[in-house]
Amino acid sequence: MLAFDKTGLSGSLFYLAAYGFTTIGAFAVVTLVRDQAGEATHLSQWAGLARRSPLLAAVFSLFLLAFAGIPATSGFIGKYAVFSAAVGHGGTWLAIVGVVSSAIAAFFYVRVIVLMYFSEPDGDSTVVAAPSAFTTVAIGVGALMTIVLGILPGPVLDLATRSSTFLP
Rank of each mutant, 00 (worst) to 15 (best):
D5S: 07
G8M: 06
S10L: 07
S10M: 02
G11H: 01
S12V: 13
L13A: 11
F14C: 07
F14N: 06
Y15H: 06
A17R: 00
A18Q: 06
Y19C: 05
Y19L: 15
G25L: 08
F27T: 07
V30T: 08
Q36T: 15
G38P: 03
G38V: 07
A40N: 01
Q45Y: 06
S53M: 05
A57T: 07
A57G: 04
F60R: 03
S61C: 09
A66Y: 01
F67I: 10
I70G: 00
A72Y: 11
G75L: 03
K79Y: 07
Y80K: 02
V82F: 08
S84Q: 13
A85C: 01
G88P: 01
G88I: 10
A95P: 09
I96C: 08
V97I: 15
V97T: 14
G98P: 01
V99E: 01
I104G: 06
A106G: 02
A106D: 01
I113T: 06
L115V: 09
L115N: 05
S119F: 13
D124L: 11
D124V: 10
S125A: 14
P131C: 05
S132W: 08
A133I: 12
F134C: 07
F134M: 14
T135D: 07
T136Y: 00
T136C: 00
A138I: 08
M145P: 04
M145I: 11
V148M: 11
L149N: 03
G150H: 00
I151A: 12
L152N: 12
P153D: 10
D158P: 04
T161G: 08
R162P: 00
R162M: 13
